[in-house]
């Protein structure tokens, strides 16, 4: 029986494990978005510093849906195309807050270590 390691899914990303989830949730917190737009938005907002690979974007979206943080619904995109729109659930919004504060603590800690040593 083929059992796949969960880690394979996000290994391809250059982002720290879990960071992509945070970025996705932050991005769709503003408005429901489809996958391509999420990737595009992250790229733009980060001044092209962050590039989200499809190879990690869709597995991440499906994982978040699987965990109940986001829901997906079919809708029509700007270009009048059918697309799967993702939005945060109530629990997802709370989870986002937790993740953000976790991230802030982590980056503050890393910065302190880099500055003081």
């Amino acid at each position: 029986m083929a059992i796949y390691k969960r880690a394979d899914v996000s290994d391809q990303t250059d982002l720290i494990q879990g960071t992509l989830d945070l970025l996705i949730m932050r991005t769709i917190a503003l408005e429901p978005m489809h996958g391509w737009a999420v990737a595009q938005r992250i790229q733009q907002v980060s001044d092209e510093l962050l590039r989200v690979q499809q190879g990690s974007l869709y597995p991440a979206l499906h994982r978040l849906e699987h965990q109940g943080w986001i829901v997906a619904e079919w809708g029509t995109s700007d270009a009048n195309r059918r697309a799967r729109f993702y939005s945060l659930t109530k629990a997802g919004r709370k989870q986002l807050e937790t993740e953000v504060s976790k991230w802030e603590r982590l980056s503050a800690g890393v910065n302190l270590v880099l500055e003081r040593t």
């Binding site: 029986m1 083929a2 059992i3 796949y4 899914v9 499809q54 190879g55 499906h62």
Partner: peptide, 18 residues
Amino acid sequence: SLKEASRDARGTGVWDAL
């Protein structure tokens, strides 16, 4: 392979294999 990874993220990979 991307489809495979997405299925896997949904946690149904093991079930499908079974």
